[in-house]
Each structure stands twice: as C-alpha cells, then as structure tokens.
C-alpha cells in the first residue's frame, strides 16, 4: 500500500500506527535517501511500541536498543559493507532475537531479510514535481494478512493520505 504524508509530524503518526501493529519478531526494512525521514519514522514506531525515549540516529553505533512493550532494536547499516560484516559483529542475535527490529539503509544488505519482513520505502518528491518539499511517498509491503489489517487501521487514523 502507499501513503502520502505531508510532513515529519505525519510521518511520526504513521510510524506510531505501524509500531502498534507489530509483534515480537517483526522486522522492518527501511529504504530511502539521505534526509528521507527514516529515523523520523522510527521515532513514531518507537512511540507505537511504548518506548519512552526518543530514538536518535544510530549511524555511529550501528544499533541502539530501547525498552518498550516489545524491545526495539534500531539498526543503521549506513556504514556496513555487507552481510558478512553485519553478521560478524553479532547483529543476528538482535535481528532474530524476538524484539522488533527497524533497519535503516536496508538496501545495503538485502539478503539478510526473511520473507516476513515489512519493507518500507520512503520517497522524497522529485525536483520539479510540484509537490511540497516535506511531503513523502511511503510504500509499505509485507505479508498479505498484516498489510490488510494494517491498511484498515491506517485508513481510519490517517484518512486523507492513504491510497
């Protein structure tokens, strides 16, 4: 499904709805350019998971962990060169550790993601597209059952933007 959000606040709201829909073991692969709003969306996901702290960029430390209704593991693969490297530093223990993993720059290590992964692509408006700078096209893909139940929740909460 695709959703258009108008600003960062909307992105956080959407993240919160996503966070509420997640179960232990959920993996979210986030893709999008620098400045697309991946960390912003994770701030919302954290809120939806009942995490009290506000996530910060994990670029430097690769992963931050937060306590919530379900633990949140917030990864950033910006500085990772491949699956071997990621696994050799022990990422699998967290990725498949029964918490929720939100992984930024997922496109760098596509092969680690299992079939139940939820993929979220965030697109900035193209220059000259006429769309306001802060709008984002957010594409969400995942298992059919999850997507359809998520769609109905999202349509109620963000009626104007879901498609």
């Amino acid at each position: 499904m695709e959703i258009q959000v108008t600003d960062a606040e909307d992105t956080i709201k959407l993240g919160e709805i996503i966070g509420k829909s997640l179960e232990p073991g959920s993996i979210i692969a986030l893709r999008g350019d620098l400045g697309a709003g991946k960390t912003v969306l994770v701030k919302g996901i954290a809120r939806g998971l009942g995490v009290e702290d506000e996530p910060v960029s994990p670029t430097f430390v690769i992963m931050n962990a937060y306590e919530g209704r379900i633990p949140l593991y917030h990864f950033d693969l910006y500085r990772i060169s491949g699956a071997d490297e990621l696994m050799s530093i022990g990422a699998d223990e967290f990725l498949f550790g029964g918490g929720v993993s939100a992984v930024e720059w997922a496109e760098r290590v596509e092969e680690i993601f299992p079939e139940y992964t939820i993929y979220i692509d965030i697109k900035m408006p193209g220059p000259g597209s006429g769309a306001a700078e802060n709008t984002r096209e957010i594409k969400i893909e995942g298992k059919k059952e999850w997507v359809s139940s998520f769609r109905s929740t999202a349509e109620q909460a963000l009626p104007a933007s879901t498609r």
């Binding site: 430390v61 992963m63 962990a65 937060y66 306590e67 967290f94």
Partner: peptide, 18 residues
Amino acid sequence: YSTSRPRYFRGRGMVSGL
C-alpha cells in the same frame, strides 16, 4: 556499552548495541 544512555536493559545482562 554503545550509547550515551546505558540505562537501557541495565541489570538484565544485555548490551545495548553492537
């Protein structure tokens, strides 16, 4: 510990980061 806020998971023997 990886973050400047090491209180996460403190006491549970978990390390908050990679």
